[in-house]
Simulated scan of single mutants.
Amino acid sequence: MSGDDDLPVPGYVLKELDPNVLRHPADKAATAALSTIPGVNRIVRMLIELGYERALRQQLLASSVRLSLQQLPDVYDRHRSAYTTLDLRTTPELYLAEHPRSNAMTVGSQEPLVLVHSRLVEGLDAQQQRVVFAHEAAHVMCDHVLYGTVLQIVLRLSGGLLSKSLPTALPFIAIQNALLEWSRAAELTCDRIAALAVRDPLLVCKTLMSLAAGTASDRLDLGAFLAQADDFGKRSRGLPGTWTKINLQLGGTHPLSVQRAHELMDWVKSGDYERIRDGVYPKRGQEDPNVREEAKAAADHYREKFQGAFKDVAGQAEGAAKSIGDWLNKNLGDKN
């Protein structure tokens, strides 16, 4: 298939859509907080320069199958259509790996690739797969891939450090936790973009429901799931609910599926989804001042909640950054 056959609606393309208009306030706050931790960007650069991104890429390529028009073309077309709809010029390579857990990731700071697990492809129908591929395309669109790649590297390195009980393990965990906070916030932005790409926020929620339950969505009730999401949102208000939610998410790269559904539907109810879907949005580099001010106000409000959770992590990460950088140079620099 090609051209309009790739699109959820013939001719539907979000031409030159500025992703900053869609960023969840938590994404904005987390990215700003992460970038202010002294030493974190130094570690990011070092991990790339020392060859860890290249090693991660080789590991993924060696244990998966590249999809194409000759290899599972129907799945590949769903992946490719996401980039057409979001008006992205380049479509990353797509790889499929055997894995019992449903997941997908996009890595590669300079040349992204998308990896999906077999469980995800087997467990989701064609339209739900479109949601996943649009979500991954959103990471590329929003320039999430650099920090996302480094997070995958850090997760692998920290596991090895902990198993060897090295002194650097605890500082590394601080950096890991800071990146995880950022990652969970970035996911909320990508859910919004996925909803626009498939023109159906309820389909995104149905996909989240299926992934959370680990079973086909036709065996579940979407209305009951959305009621559960609304109940979760009400119970999460206030300090006790906020900290319960934070503790439930510790160590995860993604927010809770029920929370994601709640956040997405709250955004839909604001009217932004329909407005952007219908083509009323600023183009890249031409952000609407009114939208910018509204987004800033929302981000400022959210930052008060977010920084409470991020404060301790950021403090640890700041103190750890120099020692980790020195340790990387001394112990890992000559191994790549």
Results as ranks from 00 to 15, higher is better:
27 D>M: 06
15 K>P: 01
106 T>C: 13
69 L>A: 11
43 I>L: 15
71 Q>V: 15
15 K>Q: 11
56 L>M: 13
92 P>M: 03
99 H>Y: 11
48 I>G: 04
103 N>P: 11
112 P>R: 02
45 R>V: 11
50 L>M: 15
53 E>V: 07
101 R>M: 12
110 Q>N: 10
44 V>K: 05
22 L>F: 07
80 R>E: 12
29 A>E: 05
121 V>P: 04
115 L>A: 10
94 L>V: 11
43 I>K: 02
69 L>R: 13
22 L>C: 12
53 E>C: 07
115 L>N: 11
91 T>F: 03
120 L>F: 02
63 S>A: 14
116 V>E: 05
19 P>R: 00
22 L>Q: 05
125 D>K: 04
56 L>K: 05
71 Q>R: 14
33 A>Y: 03
58 Q>H: 08
105 M>S: 12
82 A>H: 01
95 Y>N: 09
114 V>L: 10
78 R>G: 13
68 S>Y: 06
102 S>V: 05
116 V>R: 01
108 G>Q: 00
82 A>R: 00
126 A>K: 08
94 L>C: 11
59 Q>T: 14
27 D>W: 06
77 D>K: 11
43 I>V: 15
60 L>Y: 11
116 V>L: 06
119 R>K: 15
116 V>A: 09
103 N>Y: 05
40 V>H: 00
64 S>R: 01
32 A>G: 03
78 R>C: 12
65 V>F: 03
89 R>K: 10
41 N>D: 13
32 A>M: 07
46 M>N: 09
58 Q>W: 03
108 G>L: 00
121 V>C: 08
58 Q>M: 10
99 H>W: 07
110 Q>K: 08
50 L>E: 10
90 T>N: 09
75 V>A: 06
27 D>T: 13
85 T>L: 02
97 A>Y: 02
104 A>Y: 06
